[in-house]
Design a protein around this nucleic acid. Structure first.
Lengths: 231, 231
DNA sequence: GGTGTTTTCGACCAACAGGCGAAAACCTCG
DNA sequence: CGAGGTTTTCGCCTGTTGGTCGAAAACACC
């Protein structure tokens, strides 16, 4: 039992990346008990002088180059007393996103796994991964979070592929471009990409106007009356 | 310093209720150091055999009748090492909502305070309250969370008052009714209320179709293609 | 029955998302 | 150099939603 109610606090990160066809999560293979050999999310103990946001970045840096992680946000607390073998652990989970063009070096024990075919995971890490993907899917529709999945510059087709992989259903390129440009999150660079090997019209290249999460509020109904589009 | 990284974990609850004109939060006056005399959110230590959801309900029950709290959801983790005097504390904050017609009995040290005129609060509880109100405001526009603010049955005018108080700006009764009924969250009871003392047409009474939180998804853009309105 | 008050409902308008097909811009091959 | 194939882009149409306004409905009081 925990002395005087003191509890070990962990931080965990669901780091997602869109492979051409499906989302992948970064997992590492545990070398020690408990759950030796199972795959686990990056993370570790909360340190005495750091908050959870700082802590998760510190632990993440051991598994992946932090510069490649374009966005990190808090997900939820997992505290079921039976979420793992004793001693009891409470974890604050985060969502991290890596752009599709980044292929950061990872340690030998670490690898990307498609989220729809997860191996046996340690603790409740499979469930936590699911929560992370759900959060990403929700935010794709009402925020500019796509910036964290896409390369610096990209064509609409590439972006459509990323959205399709993340959402798990077809996405119309026409509609995607229109929605994102109307919200002002997408800006044309003026340049075009070289056509593919089988020809075709060269694709115009775009970039995200902002690389920090912003809610593109038309999702907010029941707006204030006059409303000259405040944020 | 925490032995071996073990840390005290607290749960806190931002319990909100809409007074006729403005949102109020439930606070209690601390009788002991630290921060003796300041106003604090309900909460306390996470127990050894409970998860945070169970724990926050247990602590909440000491300050207010749990049957009156219509909705509870996790907000965020607050873990700044300097969020309060030593020893270090990490807190999982929750949002709780009490319907406007409920006036639960509270202990002598506990009272409702308008959130736009908070007294001096303990720790970072003022900031946490702000986060709770922001969450409520966001969810009012794309969920049925109003059920947790309203009485069992109510008129559109009453509901408009609640939304106005929560959002801090005028809300059109016409639009409110249309949006909520179209989403299927509002259903007419068939009954009408007695007119007020100064006359007027008697108001039709409504109830929420569901008393559990549900996302009323038209907020989700980039829907699946065929989409015969799944949930 | 008239006046005042409150609620309700219909109509209009603007913004937005989704879909379709034609046109544009490129390739390769004959 | 023109024809056919490929990919992207753009314009148009449609249905839905949110916001607003004003008229009509339903009541109390005088």
């Amino acid at each position: 039992m925990e002395a005087e109610g003191l509890i070990a606090h962990d931080v965990l990160a669901v780091v997602l990346r869109m492979s051409p066809s499906s989302p992948e999560v970064l997992l590492w293979r545990r070398a020690r008990e408990p759950h030796e050999g199972r795959w686990a999310l990056p993370g570790g103990r909360l340190g005495a002088t750091e908050d959870v946001e700082v802590s998760v970045r510190r632990h993440l840096a051991e598994k992946v180059d932090l510069a490649e992680v374009a966005h990190v946000e808090q997900l939820s607390v997992f505290s079921d007393p039976h979420r793992g073998p004793a001693p009891r652990r409470v974890a604050t989970a985060f969502l991290g996103l890596v752009p599709s063009d980044a292929d950061p070096a990872v340690p030998d024990d670490t690898a990307w796994h498609p989220v729809d075919a997860l191996p046996e995971t340690a603790f409740d890490h499979g469930e936590i991964t699911r929560v992370g993907l759900d959060r990403l899917r929700a935010k794709l529709s009402y925020t500019n979070i796509g910036f964290a999945l896409a390369p610096e510059v990209f064509s609409i087709s590439e972006l459509r592929g990323l959205y399709t992989a993340a959402l798990g259903h077809r996405v119309s390129a026409t509609n995607l471009q229109r929605v994102l440009t109307r919200r002002g999150v997408l800006v044309p660079t003026g340049t075009t990409a070289a056509p593919g090997p089988s020809g075709g019209r060269p694709a115009a290249l775009f970039r995200f106007s902002e690389h920090r999460l912003r809610v593109t509020d038309p999702f907010a109904t029941l707006r204030p009356p006059d409303a000259t589009r405040d944020c």
